[in-house]
Design a protein around this nucleic acid. Structure first.
Lengths: 214, 214
DNA sequence: ACACCATCTTTTGTATACACATTTCGCCGA
DNA sequence: TCGGCGAAATGTGTATACAAAAGATGGTGT
C-alpha cells in the first residue's frame, strides 16, 4: 500500500474516532514523523482530508481538524434526508427485490439485547446501506453519500444508543427494506423520511450535552 | 497564488471546457512542464481533481480525465433534484424574503432575445443559485451542490439552448424565487422539482446526439 | 511462427533540500 | 507598563533527485 494512503487512512480513522479532536493542528513535520512517512505523501493525505471536509486549511497556517458538534446535526440530517430518500426511491425502482426481502427478515428477527447488540445493529444497518447503494446504481449519488457518512460516523460518538431505540430503529429499517422489496418508490421514500425523523429526534433528545471539546 | 492552485484551476477549467476530453491522459511530467510548475504541486492538483470526480486514477497507471456523457444525465439529475429541492425548501424557511422577490422580478423582466441572451440567462441563474445557497445556510448541503455543479457545467456543452427554452426556464426560475420569497417551503420544492423535470426533458429531447469523443 | 521471459524504458511514488511566508518572542522606546 | 518594531524561529510551498513499479520491447526457445 502507498505511504500516502496509509497516512490518509490513519488520520481519517483517528479523526472519526475522536483521537484527533476538532481544532487539533495537523503540522506536516509532526504528523509525518509520527506516522513514519515523508512530508510529500503526508501533504497528499492532508489534501484528501480537506477535500472530505474532515480538516480545514487555515490561511497561511497549518491545517486543523474541522469542527463538528451537535450544532451541526440539523444541517447534516437535512442533507442526509435528501440523499437517503433519493437513494431509497432509486433502489425501489431497481430489480434487486429478493435481496431486500432477505434484509427485511434479518432486521425483524435480529436480537438486540445481547452484549454486542450495538455492533450487530450497526452491521445490519451498514449492510442495508450497501444494498441501497448498489441498487440505486448512481455513482454521483453514491459519492455524495460517502462524503456524508464520514461526518455521520464522527457524530455517532456524541449520540447515545439505548436498546429501546435500537429496536425501534431496526423495525424502521425493516419497513424500508420491505418497501424497496415491494418496488414501491414513494413508500420507500416515506419510510426513509420517517426513520430519519425519528433518528434525529432521538439524537436531539437523548444526546450528551456536555462539552466534549475542552 | 500558490502554484498548486494555479495548476488545479487551469486543469479544471480545461476539463470543464472540453479542451481536455474524457479519457485524455494527465501525465505528471507532461502537464507540469506545460503549466510551468513542478511535479509536486501538480500532483496536489491532480489529487483534487480526482476528489472532485473530474479525473480518475487508473490502477498503477496514469490519471485520466473522467468519463462524462449524456448517458450520465439521468444519474446527475437524480442527485440534482435531491439537492436543489432540499436547498429550495431550506431557503424558503429562511429570512431573506426581499432578496428573492427582487430576483423574481428580474427573471420576469429579463429580455432573452438579444445577442448575449444566453450569458444574461446563465448570469441570472447563477445569481439565484447563489442566493439559494446563502439562504439555505447549510455548509454540508452547499459542498454537495458545489461538487455537483462542476459536472453539470461539463454537461452544458452537450446541451442545446434555444430561445424558447430559455424563456420558459426563466419563467420557472421566477416561480421558484417567488415561492421562496413567500416563505412556502413545499411550494418552492415543487417549483424546483418541476423546473428540473422540464430541464431534463429538454436536454434529452434536444441535445446533440453526435459522438463528441473521437 | 508463436509464446514466454528478461531487460530496458517510462512513469509514478517518496524523500530531502531549499526558499519563502508568517508568527512569535524579545527588545527598545514612549 | 504597554505598544510597536525587528529579528529569529518555525512551518509551509516548491523543486529536484532518487527509488520502485508497471509497460513495452526484443530476443530466444520450442
Amino acid at each position: 500500500m502507498k505511504a500516502s494512503d496509509r497516512a490518509y487512512s490513519a488520520l481519517r480513522e483517528e479523526i472519526v474516532e475522536w483521537r484527533l479532536r476538532p481544532g487539533d493542528v495537523l503540522g506536516e513535520v509532526e504528523q509525518a514523523a509520527r506516522l513514519g512517512v515523508s512530508r510529500t505523501p503526508l501533504r497528499e493525505a492532508l489534501a484528501r482530508l480537506v477535500a472530505d471536509g474532515l480538516a480545514v486549511q487555515q490561511r497561511g497556517r497549518a491545517t486543523v481538524v474541522s469542527d463538528v458538534s451537535l450544532d451541526h446535526v440539523d444541517h447534516l440530517f437535512e442533507l442526509r434526508r435528501a440523499l437517503e430518500v433519493a437513494a431509497a426511491r432509486a433502489a425501489a425502482r431497481g430489480t434487486q427485490r429478493a435481496r431486500f426481502a432477505e434484509l427485511a427478515t434479518e432486521f425483524s428477527g435480529v436480537a438486540l439485547d445481547g452484549p454486542d447488540a450495538v455492533e450487530r445493529y450497526y452491521g445490519l444497518a451498514a449492510a442495508l446501506d450497501e444494498a441501497l447503494d448498489e441498487a440505486a446504481a448512481n455513482p454521483y449519488l453514491l459519492q455524495a453519500l460517502r462524503a456524508l457518512r464520514v461526518h455521520l460516523a464522527r457524530l455517532r460518538r456524541l449520540a447515545f444508543d439505548d436498546p429501546a431505540r435500537l429496536r425501534a430503529s431496526a423495525h424502521e429499517h425493516a419497513v424500508i427494506a420491505r418497501a424497496v422489496a415491494a418496488g414501491d418508490p414513494e413508500l420507500a421514500a416515506s419510510a426513509t423520511h420517517l426513520h430519519l425523523h425519528h433518528s434525529l429526534d432521538h439524537i436531539k433528545t437523548h444526546s450528551i450535552p456536555r462539552k466534549d471539546t475542552p
